[in-house]
Amino acid sequence: MTNYSTQITALEAIVARAQAQGQSVPPGLHAHLGMLYFNTGRESEALAQFAFEKQLFPESTHFVDYVMKAQPETAL
């Protein structure tokens, strides 16, 4: 599972299953998916995932803001 696209597919499947079954996703999943999107150049999708993480888990706000600021190409 070191391959980015394999990891992304696995996490997207978890999100889709949780939505279909009306279940909540675990803490950190959206942030981790966001990181993988960033690593593969999918910036707008990454930002959307980080926004999900903050919305579902306000405890993550400080860290997620730090991570987004640390991405050089991103204009916030």
Binding site: P27, L29, H32, M35, S60, F63
Partner: peptide, 17 residues
Amino acid sequence: VTVPLAESGYYVFPVGV
């Protein structure tokens, strides 16, 4: 570490990130 702590009701910072 994430599963037991999250199931116990805490926000666990994503260990990979």
